[in-house]
Design a protein around this nucleic acid. Structure first.
Lengths: 134, 134
DNA sequence: CTAGGTGCAAAACATTTGCAAGGTA
DNA sequence: TACCTTGCAAATGTTTTGCACCTAG
């Protein structure tokens, strides 16, 4: 993705532009998936040798807060980030921990919690995937 | 809850009975809620002085595996356990981290993943609760 | 006697924090 | 200069692991 578009995306979400942020954003949008901070760090480290882990953590947290990413708490103790912002569900295999996107045929149920603000809805299916069932 | 019923519940899920398991199960069923392992440990420690943290972790993990509890990964880095097994959604406040049960008016969408086994469905709403909005 | 359950301490792991150094307007 | 971002290392908090002891069958 070209650098100009990435910068516009950052600015549209009121995030000051920086080199590291462009790299991280670029990776997430060009390689759709569900990444842990560690994976982002390991992948980008060769390209951006000075990159540090705290920057990756800071940046992913910031992006998520500004609505550029979706934060997924699917497994104990690990956070994944997903650049696909449209409503969709996730399936996670309890054995191999692989995460699959599941398109939604119907809208998620509305809930009635007076006086609350809803920011994100997550529908998660847990089980064993086809590969692991063999 | 009487001890006999608890023992039957354990046996019904093919879990060998032990004193610690009865205590933990008893607490979870008599005090519905969403607990972290640490909280279970701190609550039971006075009653069961020899109780250790690893036993609590082991036991909660075992219970969840055997279908006696529901494992919730709602927040980064923390696991909650919920003894209410009927389908229901959760609302978690991003500010005070309080978890609220949300009854479901309608069934959760069926998904179509051929060859997979679904064990658990979780619907999570994230946002800011009434108290924190003031 | 044997297998499994337990307790303790140490280890592992993901994430956060403090602070000094760097870059940019 | 002033401010925000970054990098490093240390700290934090949760969960797991290794191992010896204990207990029930």
């Amino acid at each position: 993705m070209n650098q100009k578009i990435l910068m516009e995306k950052l600015e549209a979400h009121q995030i000051p532009v920086s080199l590291q942020r462009i790299h991280i954003l670029s990776f997430l949008f060009e390689n759709p998936g569900h990444y842990r901070a560690e994976e982002v760090y390991e992948t980008l480290k060769p390209k951006v040798p000075t990159l540090s882990k705290s920057t990756v953590y800071n940046t992913l947290h910031l992006f998520s807060e500004k609505g550029l990413l979706r934060t997924l708490s699917l497994e104990e103790g690990v956070t994944h980030y997903d650049a696909m912002m449209e409503d969709h569900a996730h399936f996670i295999c309890e054995q191999c921990h692989q995460i699959t996107n599941v398109p939604l045929q119907e809208a998620l149920p509305q809930i009635d919690l007076p006086g609350t603000q809803i920011h994100q809805k997550d529908l998660i299916y847990r089980g064993i995937c086809q590969k692991c069932l063999v």
